[in-house]
């Protein structure tokens, strides 16, 4: 009988080595991370290998997804819906991750123990002034939210210049943010070892900083794909996911600024 195209819109993926490769890479990364933190021999070397293989397997996996979606047309509107929903669920899981960090912070800050001098910030901790670098970083991140929206609207309305310049501006603002966070860390009057204040502060701002880095890479990949004509004005799931992620990181920063830098000091 005559075979025509598949009569359903779903993308049945082909066998791929990347899930297994990514699992092994992540296993190497976590195990060697523990080795490194505990000063085992070659921990740093293995951690480097683990991180390289993680980045490599992720890159090759995402490359395959781009091939399937952009060059083979496997991403029908149903598949696009599924990818978007999956990403939103991922961001929700990230929200709960940050909820746990805020929970740890409020647990200690709302009823400071005797060991902390029954006060918050704990006795002897010299805190940062929220109206200096943290305020500047707030302005930088909020501005990057505006530029990324400019890029998004540029893409939807078919304005390539707005899209590319908007994304470049976003990436510059993001790099400035990360740079100022690094500057602040170097000049901070307390360390991660300085009571539960230092622990919760660096735990939360550090993970936020990692998310900014990942978001920057995510948007940079989007920029690369815009420049290479991967995205249409309607089908651009990758960039949309990066934008959702970026707004998420932005909102988390606002909460970090309000509660850690302002209220907590």
């Amino acid at each position: 009988m005559q075979k025509t195209i598949q009569s359903h819109p779903f993308h049945l993926v082909e066998p791929s080595p990347w899930p297994l490769a990514a699992s092994l890479a992540l296993l190497t990364t976590t195990l060697s991370g523990v080795m490194y933190f505990n000063n085992y021999a070659n921990g740093g070397l293995l951690l480097t290998l683990g991180l390289i293989s993680t980045v490599l397997s992720m890159s090759l996996w995402f490359r395959d997804i781009i091939i399937e979606g952009t060059f083979q047309g496997s991403h029908t509107s149903k598949v696009q819906q599924g990818l978007t929903l999956g990403f939103i669920l991922f961001v929700i899981s990230e929200v709960f991750f940050f909820i746990s960090l805020f929970w740890a912070f409020f647990h200690s800050a709302l009823s400071p123990t005797v060991e902390l001098g029954c006060m918050w910030p704990p006795a002897g901790i010299q805190v940062m002034n929220p109206w200096e670098v943290p305020l500047l970083n707030t302005v930088l991140l909020l501005s990057s939210g505006a530029t990324v929206t400019l890029a998004h609207h540029g893409l939807i309305q078919g304005n390539r210049k707005f899209t590319i310049y908007g994304l470049i501006a976003t990436i510059i603002l993001a790099i400035l943010f990360t740079g100022f966070q690094g500057f602040e860390y170097i000049n901070a009057p307390f360390t991660i070892a300085d009571s539960v204040y230092g622990s919760t502060f660096y735990f939360t701002t550090g993970f936020h900083g990692f998310h900014v880095l990942i978001g920057t890479i995510f948007i940079a990949v989007g920029l690369y794909r815009v420049i290479n004509y991967h995205f249409t004005d309607f089908h651009h799931v990758g960039l949309e996911a990066a934008i959702i992620y970026w707004h998420f990181v932005d909102i988390v920063w606002l909460l970090v600024f309000i509660f850690f830098y302002y209220w907590g000091s």
């Binding site: 195209i5 359903h8 819109p9 083979q72 047309g73 029908t76 893409l155 390539r160 249409t232 089908h235």
Partner: peptide, 29 residues
């Protein structure tokens, strides 16, 4: 320029789009 789906889509995605332009759903769901 920024391409549209009609400019650039391919494969099953394009078949779906062309079907929709004829007012038909190519998937029998």
């Amino acid at each position: 320029t920024i391409p549209t789906d009609l400019d650039q889509s391919t494969g099953l995605e394009r078949a779906e789009l062309l079907g929709k332009m004829q007012g038909k759903d190519i998937f029998d769901l």
